[in-house]
């Protein structure tokens, strides 16, 4: 008697859920999977919109177009470019600080480990806006370096405010990546008489580097989407300028759609390729086996 048919014994109690807890690439995965035609579709909706509302308002579609054409160059060069600059610097500071904080999380010294844990918890769990407010107000408007006063512009303070949560979240990515390197690597390197510091910087971190890039880019996209928050603190960027422009044009409600619609499209157009690239890299760097 044999039972040669269909004898798999490892039957799942539950299927793997598609949204398995907090996915570290959730945002990019979602954005990157969107078909390319979504962008022109959104653009079309906001172009057609003025024509649709024309009947209800004093503004003709032509007039709305003229107003938009007048403001667009400013919105891009003074507005969105500012969001991009803020996001670059935020990422720069957040990455450097996050790397060291992440190293602190895996330090041999329990004091450093505990302190890093506390910092990560505090800045991951507080609202970004609260951090922004606190940093904007506590940082001086100028700093004294070697006898000369250097003004700290508002947007630079905003960069520091946004860097804090980014630092804490990137620290967790660094820690996760370091801990994912098999401990045999440490032992092998130790047996070759490398020092602890050498092992970390020359052997472990280079291995983690590729693994960290996709989640790192994912956080870049999330943070870029959060840059309009700084408009609440009076920093000049796209949303601040859009609201000022609408005010200058008499705050007509029919301007809300085209202005906010433009903000939407430009953020989308910027983040979408990043998300696509993130997913490509994730696939490329996926650990085999």
């Amino acid at each position: 008697m044999t039972r040669s048919f269909n004898t798999s014994t490892d039957l799942p109690v539950t299927l793997e859920p598609r949204y398995q807890g907090p996915d570290e690439l959730g945002f990019s995965r979602w954005l990157g999977r969107m078909p390319v035609w979504v962008l022109p579709l959104i653009a079309a909706v906001f172009l057609i919109w003025p024509t649709v509302v024309e009947a209800q308002t004093v503004y003709s579609a032509q007039k709305i177009m003229d107003i938009m054409a007048k403001w667009l160059p400013l919105l891009i060069t003074q507005g969105f470019l500012m969001n991009v600059i803020i996001s670059f610097f935020t990422m720069l500071f957040g990455t450097i600080a996050g790397l060291f904080l992440g190293l602190g999380r895996v330090s041999d010294n329990s004091g450093i480990r505990g302190f890093s844990w506390l910092v990560v918890q505090l800045f991951r769990n507080s609202p970004w806006l609260v951090l922004l407010f606190i940093v904007m107000l506590t940082l001086p408007f100028e700093i004294r370096i070697a006898g000369t006063y250097i003004a700290v512009p508002d947007w630079m303070k905003a960069v520091f405010g946004l860097s804090l949560p980014i630092m804490a979240n990137l620290a967790e990515i660094v820690r996760g990546a370091i801990q994912s390197v098999p401990s045999a690597q440490w032992e092998a390197a130790e047996s070759l008489a490398f020092s602890k510091r050498q092992i970390m910087w020359q052997i472990i971190l280079p291995q983690c580097f590729k693994r960290m890039i996709p989640p790192w880019m994912n956080w870049y996209a999330i943070m870029t989407m959060a840059t309009p928050l700084v408009s609440l603190l009076g920093v000049t960027e796209l949303v601040t300028l859009s609201r000022q422009a609408m005010e200058a044009e008499g705050n007509n409600p029919s301007l809300l759609m085209p202005f906010f619609g433009f903000a939407l499209i430009i953020f989308f157009a910027y983040c979408y390729p990043i998300a696509r690239l993130t997913l490509r890299l994730e696939k490329k760097y996926a650990v085999k086996g």
């Binding site: 039972r3 048919f5 269909n6 004898t7 798999s8 014994t9 039957l11």
Partner: peptide
Amino acid sequence: DEVTAALDPETV
């Protein structure tokens, strides 16, 4: 419906 097909021989 093939109630023993997924079981180990001992538990069949």
